[in-house]
Write a protein that binds this DNA or RNA. Sequence first.
DNA 1: TTGTGTTTTACGACCTCC
DNA 2: GGAGGTCGTAAAACACAA
Length: 222
Amino acid sequence: MDKHQLFDSSNVDTTFFAANGTAQGDTSKQRARRRRRRSARCGGGDGDGGEMDGGGDPKKRRLTDEQAEILELSLREDRKLETARKVYLAAELGLDPKQVAVWFQNRRARHKNKTLEEEFARLKHAHDAAILHKCHLENELLRLKERLGATEQEVRRLRSAAGSHGASVDGGHAAGAVGVCGGSPSSSFSTGTCQQQPGFSGADVLGRDDDLMMCVPEWFLA
DNA sequence: TTGTGTTTTACGACCTCC
DNA sequence: GGAGGTCGTAAAACACAA
C-alpha cells in the first residue's frame, strides 16, 4: 500500500509532531529497538499485517513498524478519528477498528504527557531564573545597606571631629560626598544569606559572577 | 538469567457533542 | 442515545544493567 496516496501531507499538524517521535523523525535507536523487538518475536519475519504470529496474548498485540508508521501519518493528517477513517485504516492495516481507535487515544495521551513535561521544564527554568534574579537584588540591597551604614558612621565621625575643633560642618553634604566617592561596594561584603529551595538549579540559568557567588549557598557550589 | 524500569496496548469510567 | 473524547490504570512487551 502506498501511504502517500492515503494521506495528504499538505494538511499536516506540524506542531503536534514537532514534539513527538514521528515515523519520519524516529531516531535510529528507536528503529533498531523495534527491529530487535520484532525479530525476536517473529523470528526475523517481515511483520506484514496485523497478525502477530508469535503466539502471544491475542489481546495485546504490538503493531508492526509499518502499521505504526501509517497510523502516525494518519494522525498527522488529523488528530480526530472519524468512523469512516477508522474503518478504512483498520481494513488497510488488518487491524480491528477498536485497535485503531485505542492507538489514537494512547498516542494523543502520550503527546499530551510529553507536552506537559516540556511545559513544566520551561516553567521551572523560568522559575529558577527568577529566584536567581531575586538573589541578585537581595545582595545588592545588602551591599547598599552596608554602604549606608558606613556613610552614617563617617558622618558621625566628622561631626564629632568638627565639634571638638569648634568648626561647623555641613553633615548632609559630607554624607553625600562619601556616598558618591565611596570605595569598592563589595570590598567588605560577606557571604549572602539567600535561602534556596532544594532542587534549585540556577547554574544553567545564568552564568556565575561575583553576585552569584555571594548569593548561592555552599551546597549549590559543591 | 533475572530484576527492574520504561513503553505500548487495552480497558472501563466518565464527559461532551450532535 | 450513540459516537468519540480524556483520564487513570492494568498488564504485556521490551530494554538493559547487574
